[in-house]
Amino acid sequence: MNHFPEPVVAWHGQDNPDLPLVVLLHGRGADENGIIGLANHLPASASYAAVRAPIAEGGGYAWFANRGIGRPIAESLEQTMAWFRNWLDEVAPADRSVLLIGFSGGAAFAGGLLLSDPVRFAGAAILYGTLPFDAGVPTTPGHLTGVPVFVAQGDADTVIPRELLDRTWTYITEQSGATAHPRRDPGGHSLSQETAVELPEWVARRLSH
């Protein structure tokens, strides 16, 4: 069992435990400071936390060891998800609504958390990344029935393998049973202007529930 460091967390202002919690998960090789600014564009009716991934990599941090881009090693993903859930259970008891927003590698991690325990989360945004297929979490038909999932992809994304992007799109929109909010853009591996407009609206609807 790996021994990970204590979580490093950037908060957008003060945490208010009476509000829903939105957790922002950065991409591979980045850190919490690169994504916490997204909270400036999201509804004020939540607390926002960006967590630093536990594995040092390339001047930044990663959520799991992998066997290729977008392909987590199952044992590593299991360990880092357990580490994350220990932190989450401290700041968000089971009766506190938690929404996940992940970008790139953080999208795969958010997807792993959601797939491993769909009841725990109010939904997830899978931004410009893949679900962690073949990595020990269930991806059976109907597994996310009724769970809100925002999925955004760029048609010109050359970072995440196209096979994984297509598999993620098909699973979320056709097979998972999720209440999907899909959007595809002509751009690449970055947040488009259109997604930047639609994501806050989607988050606002989730928070109102």
Score class of each variant (00 low, 15 high):
His26Thr: 03
Ala110Arg: 06
Ser208Asn: 13
Leu165Ala: 11
Gly59Thr: 05
Ile36Asn: 01
Gly70Val: 10
Ala62Tyr: 05
Val9Tyr: 06
Asp18Pro: 00
Ala152Tyr: 05
Leu77Gly: 08
Asp15Asn: 15
Val151Trp: 11
His12Met: 07
His209Thr: 14
Ala65Cys: 09
Val8Gln: 15
Ala65Phe: 13
Tyr171Ile: 02
Tyr61Asp: 01
Thr80Arg: 10
Arg85Val: 12
Glu198Thr: 15
Gln79Val: 02
Phe84Ala: 04
Ala122Tyr: 07
Leu207Ala: 03
Ala10Leu: 14
Gly106Glu: 05
Phe121Ala: 00
Thr179Val: 12
Ile35Asn: 04
Ala74Gln: 11
Ser190Ile: 03
Glu75Arg: 14
Glu57Gly: 03
Gln153Glu: 13
Phe84Ser: 00
Gly58Leu: 10
Met81Arg: 14
Gly59Cys: 10
Pro132Met: 11
Gly136Asp: 05
Leu131Ala: 01
Ala10Arg: 13
Ala39Arg: 08
Pro54Ile: 08
Trp202Thr: 01
Ser190Tyr: 15
Leu42Val: 01
Asp117Val: 04
Thr145Cys: 08
His209Val: 13
Met1Tyr: 08
Val203Asn: 02
Asp185Gln: 14
Val91Gln: 08
Phe121Met: 07
Trp11Cys: 00
Gln14Gly: 00
Gln193Arg: 15
Thr173His: 06
Ala62Arg: 15
Leu165Trp: 01
Gly112Tyr: 09
Ser45Leu: 09
Leu114Ser: 01
Gly58Lys: 10
Arg28Lys: 11
